[in-house]
Amino acid sequence: MTDSRLSIETIGLTKIYGSGNTEVVAMRDASMQVNRGEVVALLGPSGAGKSTFLTAVGLINPPTSGQIRIDGQLVMDGPHAKVHLRSFRRRHIGFVFQKSNLIPFLSAIENVQVALELNGESPRAARRRARELLEYLGVADRSGNYPSMLSGGQQQRVAVARALANRPSVILADEPTAALDSHRGRQVMELFAKVAHERGAGVIVVTHDQRSLDVFDTIYEMEDGVIHRKAHQAATGPTGHRR
């Protein structure tokens, strides 16, 4: 039975690379539930399996076993896809990475626009919505600039705008503040909390940044491929939004 409040649900995800003597278990029985509007931090040392978990939930790297449900829909059953992964990703999942990963030959607004057009928006409507998103994230004045002309924080904001473009129910972020100073890093974390709370998306952020943990609603820790729920945040987050 599925819970309609759940944005992301993973059940017993396991990922094994290689076989026999070269077998490596990167993720073991990883289960997690993220509600709509909830911001979750996933902590852990390098090599703990955080990125493996994130790419599995992002439908990039299928698990060896376990299930993934998004918005209550079973999308992965073991390594078997139950939906067309690329189009499902396009409509339901937004990604933000350590490096902003913007397309270098597109301007800031075009980087957002392309995600919308890929989802079937007309160029004019996509342009309008891309501008709204850049305004929402405070980088509208740099909309015509190429990524190389933007600061790290501005690039990350554009990347967040692109992640939000198709109103995804899931946002996955992998070390999104690693390239930023603490002030800008916190701004980005608060941004995730803001969009999660305002737009009702489930957000998982893989981070090492201990200074911004108060932003998150729930914190998980991963070690040797196993996920533990570490702590529970106060009912009211730093942005003042009640869950």
Binding site: R86, F88, R90, N101, A115, N119
Partner: peptide, 15 residues
């Protein structure tokens, strides 16, 4: 030269 951008396009769902 564009492989990274192509991978990114695939990631965000480009057919």
């Amino acid at each position: 030269d564009k492989l990274h951008s192509i991978a990114l396009l695939k990631l965000i769902g480009a057919p």
